[in-house]
Nucleic acid binder design. Structure first.
Lengths: 140, 140
DNA sequence: TATCTTTATGAAACAATGTTGCATAAAGTA
DNA sequence: TACTTTATGCAACATTGTTTCATAAAGATA
Protein backbone atom coordinates (compact mmCIF):
# COMPACT_ATOMS: atom_id res chain seq x y z
CA UNK A 1 0.00 0.00 0.00
CA UNK A 2 2.74 2.43 0.95
CA UNK A 3 4.41 1.59 -2.33
CA UNK A 4 1.25 2.40 -4.26
CA UNK A 5 0.85 5.63 -2.32
CA UNK A 6 4.43 6.72 -3.00
CA UNK A 7 4.01 5.81 -6.63
CA UNK A 8 1.04 8.08 -7.02
CA UNK A 9 2.69 10.92 -5.16
CA UNK A 10 5.85 10.89 -7.25
CA UNK A 11 3.91 10.43 -10.47
CA UNK A 12 2.20 13.71 -9.67
CA UNK A 13 5.37 15.49 -8.60
CA UNK A 14 4.46 15.64 -4.94
CA UNK A 15 7.04 15.17 -2.21
CA UNK A 16 6.47 12.07 -0.11
CA UNK A 17 5.74 13.37 3.34
CA UNK A 18 4.11 11.45 6.16
CA UNK A 19 1.03 13.66 6.03
CA UNK A 20 0.49 13.20 2.32
CA UNK A 21 1.00 9.48 2.51
CA UNK A 22 -1.58 9.19 5.22
CA UNK A 23 -4.09 11.42 3.48
CA UNK A 24 -3.74 9.63 0.17
CA UNK A 25 -4.17 6.29 1.92
CA UNK A 26 -7.45 7.50 3.35
CA UNK A 27 -8.67 8.47 -0.10
CA UNK A 28 -7.64 5.16 -1.61
CA UNK A 29 -9.43 3.27 1.13
CA UNK A 30 -12.58 5.29 0.64
CA UNK A 31 -12.89 4.06 -2.95
CA UNK A 32 -15.65 5.78 -4.88
CA UNK A 33 -16.98 7.46 -1.77
CA UNK A 34 -16.22 11.19 -1.61
CA UNK A 35 -14.96 12.57 1.69
CA UNK A 36 -15.96 15.74 3.46
CA UNK A 37 -13.52 17.79 5.48
CA UNK A 38 -15.02 16.30 8.61
CA UNK A 39 -14.73 12.74 7.32
CA UNK A 40 -11.06 13.32 6.66
CA UNK A 41 -10.39 14.96 10.01
CA UNK A 42 -11.91 11.97 11.77
CA UNK A 43 -9.89 9.52 9.74
CA UNK A 44 -6.68 11.44 10.33
CA UNK A 45 -6.91 11.65 14.07
CA UNK A 46 -4.54 14.23 15.51
CA UNK A 47 -3.35 16.60 12.81
CA UNK A 48 -2.97 20.20 11.73
CA UNK A 49 -6.04 21.82 10.23
CA UNK A 50 -4.09 24.21 8.01
CA UNK A 51 -1.87 21.52 6.57
CA UNK A 52 -4.97 19.60 5.62
CA UNK A 53 -6.39 22.57 3.72
CA UNK A 54 -3.12 23.01 1.90
CA UNK A 55 -2.64 19.35 1.13
CA UNK A 56 -6.13 19.03 -0.26
CA UNK A 57 -5.37 21.98 -2.49
CA UNK A 58 -2.11 20.43 -3.70
CA UNK A 59 -3.79 17.12 -4.38
CA UNK A 60 -6.45 18.91 -6.36
CA UNK A 61 -3.99 21.03 -8.31
CA UNK A 62 -1.90 18.04 -9.20
CA UNK A 63 -4.87 15.95 -10.31
CA UNK A 64 -5.00 13.34 -7.53
CA UNK A 65 -8.41 14.27 -6.25
CA UNK A 66 -11.37 16.27 -7.51
CA UNK A 67 -14.11 18.13 -5.84
CA UNK A 68 -17.30 16.07 -5.86
CA UNK A 69 -20.02 18.61 -6.57
CA UNK A 70 -23.11 17.00 -5.09
CA UNK A 71 -25.38 19.94 -4.36
CA UNK A 72 -24.87 19.53 -0.60
CA UNK A 73 -23.43 22.15 1.66
CA UNK A 74 -20.15 20.40 2.57
CA UNK A 75 -17.50 20.26 -0.09
CA UNK A 76 -16.33 16.73 -0.66
CA UNK A 77 -13.31 15.28 -2.38
CA UNK A 78 -12.70 11.98 -4.13
CA UNK A 79 -9.86 10.23 -5.90
CA UNK A 80 -9.51 10.87 -9.59
CA UNK A 81 -9.72 7.66 -11.57
CA UNK A 82 -6.77 7.99 -13.84
CA UNK A 83 -5.74 10.46 -16.43
CA UNK A 84 -6.03 13.65 -14.43
CA UNK A 85 -2.88 15.67 -13.96
CA UNK A 86 -1.68 19.15 -13.22
CA UNK A 87 -2.92 20.36 -16.62
CA UNK A 88 -6.46 19.12 -16.65
CA UNK A 89 -9.06 17.27 -14.72
CA UNK A 90 -11.35 14.85 -16.51
CA UNK A 91 -13.96 14.07 -13.92
CA UNK A 92 -17.11 14.02 -15.95
CA UNK A 93 -19.04 11.49 -13.95
CA UNK A 94 -22.11 12.26 -11.84
CA UNK A 95 -21.99 12.41 -8.06
CA UNK A 96 -24.78 10.97 -6.02
CA UNK A 97 -25.55 12.29 -2.54
CA UNK A 98 -27.63 9.94 -0.43
CA UNK A 99 -30.10 11.96 1.62
CA UNK A 100 -30.41 9.15 4.10
CA UNK A 101 -26.81 8.31 5.01
CA UNK A 102 -25.14 11.48 3.70
CA UNK A 103 -22.57 9.61 1.66
CA UNK A 104 -21.59 10.91 -1.77
CA UNK A 105 -20.62 8.40 -4.44
CA UNK A 106 -18.68 8.92 -7.63
CA UNK A 107 -20.62 7.20 -10.41
CA UNK A 108 -17.73 6.52 -12.68
CA UNK A 109 -19.65 4.09 -14.81
CA UNK A 110 -22.26 6.66 -15.86
CA UNK A 111 -21.63 9.06 -18.69
CA UNK A 112 -23.31 12.45 -18.57
CA UNK A 113 -25.49 12.57 -21.68
CA UNK A 114 -25.10 15.27 -24.32
CA UNK A 115 -27.36 18.29 -24.62
CA UNK A 116 -27.43 21.45 -26.65
CA UNK A 117 -26.21 24.73 -25.30
CA UNK A 118 -27.53 28.11 -26.47
CA UNK A 119 -25.66 29.86 -29.27
CA UNK A 120 -22.32 31.42 -28.32
CA UNK A 121 -21.91 29.54 -25.10
CA UNK A 122 -18.69 27.53 -24.80
CA UNK A 123 -18.71 24.58 -22.45
CA UNK A 124 -15.57 23.81 -20.46
CA UNK A 125 -16.64 22.14 -17.23
CA UNK A 126 -19.61 20.09 -16.18
CA UNK A 127 -20.96 18.59 -12.96
CA UNK A 128 -24.02 16.43 -12.55
CA UNK A 129 -25.11 16.36 -8.92
CA UNK A 130 -27.72 13.76 -8.08
CA UNK A 131 -29.44 13.04 -4.81
CA UNK A 132 -31.87 10.55 -3.41
CA UNK A 133 -31.47 7.18 -1.73
CA UNK A 134 -28.43 5.00 -2.30
CA UNK A 135 -28.44 1.25 -2.80
CA UNK A 136 -27.46 0.38 0.79
CA UNK A 137 -30.11 2.63 2.28
CA UNK A 138 -32.79 1.34 -0.11
CA UNK A 139 -32.33 -2.21 1.11
CA UNK A 140 -33.14 -1.43 4.74
CA UNK B 1 -43.77 46.37 -9.73
CA UNK B 2 -44.64 46.68 -6.08
CA UNK B 3 -47.98 45.11 -6.90
CA UNK B 4 -46.28 42.17 -8.56
CA UNK B 5 -43.91 41.79 -5.62
CA UNK B 6 -46.74 41.83 -3.07
CA UNK B 7 -48.63 39.35 -5.19
CA UNK B 8 -45.81 36.87 -5.12
CA UNK B 9 -45.23 37.32 -1.40
CA UNK B 10 -48.81 36.72 -0.41
CA UNK B 11 -49.17 33.83 -2.86
CA UNK B 12 -46.38 32.13 -0.93
CA UNK B 13 -47.73 33.03 2.49
CA UNK B 14 -45.01 35.53 3.31
CA UNK B 15 -45.72 38.74 5.17
CA UNK B 16 -45.13 41.85 3.11
CA UNK B 17 -42.28 43.60 4.86
CA UNK B 18 -40.10 46.33 3.38
CA UNK B 19 -37.07 44.07 3.44
CA UNK B 20 -38.77 41.23 1.60
CA UNK B 21 -40.24 43.55 -0.98
CA UNK B 22 -36.86 45.00 -1.70
CA UNK B 23 -35.12 41.65 -1.86
CA UNK B 24 -37.73 40.14 -4.12
CA UNK B 25 -37.52 43.17 -6.40
CA UNK B 26 -33.78 42.58 -6.74
CA UNK B 27 -34.37 38.98 -7.74
CA UNK B 28 -37.03 39.90 -10.28
CA UNK B 29 -34.76 42.50 -11.83
CA UNK B 30 -31.91 40.01 -12.10
CA UNK B 31 -33.99 37.80 -14.39
CA UNK B 32 -32.32 34.48 -15.12
CA UNK B 33 -29.06 35.57 -13.52
CA UNK B 34 -28.41 33.94 -10.14
CA UNK B 35 -27.19 36.18 -7.33
CA UNK B 36 -24.46 35.54 -4.82
CA UNK B 37 -24.64 36.79 -1.27
CA UNK B 38 -22.27 39.57 -2.23
CA UNK B 39 -24.32 40.57 -5.27
CA UNK B 40 -27.36 40.90 -3.07
CA UNK B 41 -25.56 42.85 -0.35
CA UNK B 42 -24.38 45.36 -2.93
CA UNK B 43 -27.83 45.71 -4.43
CA UNK B 44 -29.42 46.16 -1.03
CA UNK B 45 -27.16 48.92 0.23
CA UNK B 46 -27.45 49.40 3.96
CA UNK B 47 -29.08 46.40 5.58
CA UNK B 48 -28.84 43.75 8.26
CA UNK B 49 -26.73 40.70 7.40
CA UNK B 50 -28.68 38.32 9.59
CA UNK B 51 -32.03 39.35 8.23
CA UNK B 52 -30.72 38.65 4.76
CA UNK B 53 -29.69 35.13 5.71
CA UNK B 54 -33.08 34.50 7.22
CA UNK B 55 -35.03 36.02 4.39
CA UNK B 56 -33.15 33.98 1.82
CA UNK B 57 -34.00 30.90 3.82
CA UNK B 58 -37.69 31.83 3.96
CA UNK B 59 -37.77 32.54 0.24
CA UNK B 60 -36.18 29.18 -0.41
CA UNK B 61 -38.49 27.29 1.95
CA UNK B 62 -41.56 28.87 0.43
CA UNK B 63 -40.47 28.19 -3.13
CA UNK B 64 -39.71 31.72 -4.38
CA UNK B 65 -36.05 31.13 -5.04
CA UNK B 66 -33.76 28.15 -5.46
CA UNK B 67 -30.12 27.59 -4.94
CA UNK B 68 -28.28 27.66 -8.25
CA UNK B 69 -25.74 24.88 -7.96
CA UNK B 70 -23.04 25.93 -10.41
CA UNK B 71 -19.94 24.20 -9.07
CA UNK B 72 -18.47 27.51 -7.93
CA UNK B 73 -17.57 28.34 -4.39
CA UNK B 74 -20.18 31.04 -3.71
CA UNK B 75 -23.72 29.86 -3.23
CA UNK B 76 -26.06 31.68 -5.57
CA UNK B 77 -29.80 32.08 -5.63
CA UNK B 78 -32.26 32.67 -8.44
CA UNK B 79 -35.99 33.14 -8.86
CA UNK B 80 -38.05 30.03 -9.37
CA UNK B 81 -39.96 30.17 -12.61
CA UNK B 82 -43.39 29.15 -11.50
CA UNK B 83 -44.81 26.09 -9.88
CA UNK B 84 -42.48 25.85 -6.89
CA UNK B 85 -44.07 26.12 -3.49
CA UNK B 86 -43.53 25.21 0.12
CA UNK B 87 -44.00 21.53 -0.68
CA UNK B 88 -41.61 21.05 -3.54
CA UNK B 89 -39.13 22.70 -5.76
CA UNK B 90 -39.06 21.87 -9.46
CA UNK B 91 -35.87 23.50 -10.64
CA UNK B 92 -34.50 20.93 -13.00
CA UNK B 93 -32.70 23.24 -15.37
CA UNK B 94 -28.93 23.51 -15.74
CA UNK B 95 -26.97 26.43 -14.34
CA UNK B 96 -24.13 27.91 -16.31
CA UNK B 97 -21.25 29.67 -14.57
CA UNK B 98 -19.23 31.94 -16.85
CA UNK B 99 -15.57 31.67 -15.92
CA UNK B 100 -14.89 35.02 -17.49
CA UNK B 101 -17.48 37.33 -15.94
CA UNK B 102 -18.48 35.13 -12.99
CA UNK B 103 -22.17 35.34 -13.73
CA UNK B 104 -24.37 32.28 -13.27
CA UNK B 105 -27.36 31.85 -15.57
CA UNK B 106 -30.42 29.69 -15.16
CA UNK B 107 -30.94 27.82 -18.43
CA UNK B 108 -34.64 27.33 -18.12
CA UNK B 109 -35.04 26.37 -21.75
CA UNK B 110 -32.74 23.35 -21.47
CA UNK B 111 -34.00 20.06 -20.15
CA UNK B 112 -31.54 17.79 -18.37
CA UNK B 113 -31.46 14.60 -20.43
CA UNK B 114 -32.32 11.22 -18.99
CA UNK B 115 -29.77 8.65 -17.92
CA UNK B 116 -29.78 5.33 -16.14
CA UNK B 117 -28.98 5.00 -12.50
CA UNK B 118 -27.51 1.84 -10.95
CA UNK B 119 -29.91 -0.69 -9.49
CA UNK B 120 -31.52 0.24 -6.17
CA UNK B 121 -30.71 3.92 -6.38
CA UNK B 122 -33.71 6.25 -6.12
CA UNK B 123 -33.38 9.67 -7.68
CA UNK B 124 -35.00 12.63 -5.97
CA UNK B 125 -32.97 15.73 -6.82
CA UNK B 126 -30.74 16.72 -9.67
CA UNK B 127 -28.43 19.60 -10.52
CA UNK B 128 -26.51 20.12 -13.72
CA UNK B 129 -23.72 22.64 -13.20
CA UNK B 130 -22.05 23.87 -16.36
CA UNK B 131 -19.18 26.27 -16.79
CA UNK B 132 -17.30 27.94 -19.58
CA UNK B 133 -17.80 31.20 -21.47
CA UNK B 134 -21.18 32.88 -21.73
CA UNK B 135 -22.61 34.50 -24.83
CA UNK B 136 -21.73 38.07 -23.84
CA UNK B 137 -18.15 37.19 -23.01
CA UNK B 138 -17.74 35.17 -26.22
CA UNK B 139 -18.58 38.17 -28.36
CA UNK B 140 -15.77 40.32 -27.02
C1' DT C 1 27.32 11.00 3.68
C1' DA C 2 27.46 15.97 4.20
C1' DT C 3 25.74 20.09 2.25
C1' DC C 4 22.59 22.94 -0.12
C1' DT C 5 18.17 24.37 -2.09
C1' DT C 6 13.47 23.97 -2.26
C1' DT C 7 9.19 22.88 -0.44
C1' DA C 8 6.08 21.38 3.44
C1' DT C 9 4.67 21.76 8.11
C1' DG C 10 2.74 23.73 12.31
C1' DA C 11 1.45 27.63 15.04
C1' DA C 12 -0.70 32.13 15.65
C1' DA C 13 -3.36 35.59 14.09
C1' DC C 14 -6.70 36.99 11.13
C1' DA C 15 -10.75 37.18 7.90
C1' DA C 16 -14.95 35.66 6.16
C1' DT C 17 -19.17 33.19 6.64
C1' DG C 18 -23.00 31.46 8.92
C1' DT C 19 -25.97 30.67 13.43
C1' DT C 20 -28.52 31.41 17.95
C1' DG C 21 -30.93 33.98 21.50
C1' DC C 22 -33.49 37.74 22.73
C1' DA C 23 -35.84 42.20 23.03
C1' DT C 24 -38.33 45.22 20.05
C1' DA C 25 -41.11 46.35 16.05
C1' DA C 26 -44.25 45.56 12.62
C1' DA C 27 -47.82 42.71 10.02
C1' DG C 28 -51.96 40.42 9.89
C1' DT C 29 -56.48 39.46 12.40
C1' DA C 30 -60.66 40.13 15.11
C1' DT D 1 -58.13 49.47 18.71
C1' DA D 2 -56.36 45.64 20.90
C1' DC D 3 -54.35 41.22 20.25
C1' DT D 4 -51.52 37.49 18.34
C1' DT D 5 -48.04 36.06 15.47
C1' DT D 6 -44.05 36.69 12.90
C1' DA D 7 -40.00 39.54 11.32
C1' DT D 8 -36.26 42.53 12.39
C1' DG D 9 -31.93 44.16 14.30
C1' DC D 10 -28.31 43.57 17.45
C1' DA D 11 -24.90 41.07 20.18
C1' DA D 12 -22.48 37.23 20.86
C1' DC D 13 -20.98 33.08 19.22
C1' DA D 14 -19.47 29.21 16.12
C1' DT D 15 -17.55 27.53 12.00
C1' DT D 16 -14.74 27.71 8.02
C1' DG D 17 -11.04 29.19 5.39
C1' DT D 18 -6.60 32.22 4.66
C1' DT D 19 -2.05 34.60 5.47
C1' DT D 20 2.37 35.08 7.53
C1' DC D 21 6.44 33.28 9.19
C1' DA D 22 9.89 30.45 11.50
C1' DT D 23 11.21 25.70 11.57
C1' DA D 24 11.61 21.07 9.69
C1' DA D 25 12.00 17.82 6.28
C1' DA D 26 12.54 16.21 1.30
C1' DG D 27 14.98 15.90 -2.75
C1' DA D 28 19.19 17.13 -5.32
C1' DT D 29 24.25 17.67 -5.67
C1' DA D 30 28.72 16.78 -4.78
Amino acid sequence: MLHKVDDILSKHALRRTAFRQELLKIFIESGSRALSHTDIEEALGDHDRITLYRTLKSFQDKGLIHEAVDGGKDTKYALCQNQCDVHHHIDHHPHFLCESCGVTYCMDEIKIPDFDLPRNYTLKGMHLALSGTCASCSKV
